[in-house]
């Protein structure tokens, strides 16, 4: 009795190992790209010039998020709650604020004025609200999908 089938040359252990290697490779590329985008943004690269990197990052992010939601998966460590969304939305907001502040006041050497500071702060709040709203939508979709998948699995298990 041959266990192996299809044209896959690897057995299940080798396949699992290769998946782990590919997973590591994916996250390596993802974070190196994210850091590269941040550094370029800091150095004053325009949005137009960053379009390629941003398109690649967005494609990977959209794929990860929507595939996870479709399969009723969130993260390994956290389940989505109002509280975790309140906290995690602070991260992109802080990064956005820090990048803009460093770019304006350190790289471009603009004078630290109240107007510019308030503008960055307002944009940070905007990013926070946007991220929080998106995360809340995802939380609702996740819960709905999880319920649906659990119901299907329960019906099939009967």
């Amino acid at each position: 009795m041959k266990y192996k089938k299809s044209n896959n040359m690897l057995d299940e252990m080798q396949d699992n190992k290769l998946l782990k290697i590919e997973e590591f490779g994916f996250w390596l590329v993802f974070w190196v790209l994210a850091v590269a985008v941040l550094l370029q943004a800091l150095m004053g690269t325009t949005l137009k010039e960053l379009m390629g990197e941003l398109a690649a990052l967005s494609a990977a992010s959209v794929y990860i998020v929507f595939s996870g939601l479709k399969n009723g998966l969130w993260t390994r460590k956290y389940t989505p709650t109002f509280k975790t969304n309140v906290i995690t939305s602070l991260i992109p907001s802080f990064i956005f604020g820090a990048v803009n502040a460093v770019r304006a006041f350190v790289i471009l050497k603009k004078p630290i004025e109240l107007g510019a500071t308030v503008r960055i702060a307002v944009m940070c709040v905007g990013v926070y609200i946007l991220c929080f709203a998106i995360m809340e939508v995802f939380r609702c979709v996740y819960k709905k999908r999880r319920r649906k998948l659990d119901d299907i699995e329960e019906e099939e298990g009967r």
């Binding site: 009795m1 041959k2 299940e12």
Partner: peptide, 25 residues
Amino acid sequence: VGVSRQTMNAIEQGDYNPTIKLCRA
């Protein structure tokens, strides 16, 4: 069973938990 010796060795050593499908094979 159609697996590599490396995999069979890992199962014997307890370093890899095979799927129920492979166990049955």
